[in-house]
Design a protein around this nucleic acid. Sequence first.
DNA 1: CTAATTTGCCTAAATGCTTTAGGCAAATGC
DNA 2: GCATTTGCCTAAAGCATTTAGGCAAATTAG
Lengths: 192, 192
Amino acid sequence: MVRVGLTTERVVRAGAELADEVGFDQVTVSELARRFDVKVASLYSHVTSSQDLKTRIALFALEELADRAADALAGRAGKDALIAFANAYRDYGREHPGRAAAARLRLDPETAAASAGVRHARMTRAILRGYDLTEPDQTHAVRLLGSVFHGYSSLETAGGFSHSAPDSQESWTRILDALDALLRNWPTAPTL
Amino acid sequence: MVRVGLTTERVVRAGAELADEVGFDQVTVSELARRFDVKVASLYSHVTSSQDLKTRIALFALEELADRAADALAGRAGKDALIAFANAYRDYGREHPGRAAAARLRLDPETAAASAGVRHARMTRAILRGYDLTEPDQTHAVRLLGSVFHGYSSLETAGGFSHSAPDSQESWTRILDALDALLRNWPTAPTL
DNA sequence: CTAATTTGCCTAAATGCTTTAGGCAAATGC
DNA sequence: GCATTTGCCTAAAGCATTTAGGCAAATTAG
């Protein structure tokens, strides 16, 4: 009986890789066991359930993405920061579609509150300090940016923008230009 | 042996309702059989697999949502049309979270091409005719709007905006104001 | 109005994922 | 060296998926 050296950490990391390969919702404890060449029951010492595994992968992805976004943000401000930050999201989604899907998993409120999700929100807000927005507009803008990053990545992964001109990269660049322009010129009052 | 009168249509519709109740990824052929008070195998005459069921629910949701959006659009133009259309999406997501999640299912290209997804794209483009956008900016704008509607609904369903001020409705309204302003003033050249 | 056919739901069974209980051996600590 | 903890095991139950084959009800045809 050779010990493989399983830890929750390693299991989750392997789960993230599996998600990128086969899709987040195809991630299964059984498949993971196969990859470690270990019996299924053994993994249940490290995760409590299949759901637990998925939640941990989601938290892992949120952390990893937050780290990347923080790196991208370092030393930048204004439109530069916006673009670098946005690209961190899009690139992550393209490189790691499974993990990105995991990061979109619905978490229960307490779990979400303790997750790296709050770092994401803080960073988005930091970017907006480069624009002239006061509350509550800043919050509206945070939500808009979250929706766009989230939504674009999701649609792009689903293949929504492939096989049609103009290519996705061009749309992305122009959308970021547009968002920058919008943030610099955020409408103050509803145009009724 | 009493016949329940199953049809693919009825099975898919019940699947959509089940999705709204328990979440799209919790939809299972077995649970559906229980609800029809029928043996599981019986459902396999109407759908070929669990995956087939989910795809059909997704297509159903896309149709239903397209119908609603078309109704919302009728007789409107400009910002009015934008808001009505956007609200159709958001309302659908709030009333039918499971179906909305289904509508975000990744479809293979041929299935997607034959789905109501193309109606969605056409309607979005129709709205943009109320603004002064030429290609390729119109396509960029279609993708932006798709990302926002998609992303906002998804984040809202995940609870991202609850329990924090300002409330989601206010953000939504202001985001639509902002998008309208952006479309009226779409930046033509990249501001380098 | 039967008889033939089709259709709708069934039983049975194989396969695979999830999860729990209990056990043995390897690693660790005294 | 011995006790304890830890890591992986076997075993087994439960549930979802899927296929094969059968019988009875509904439909159609003569």
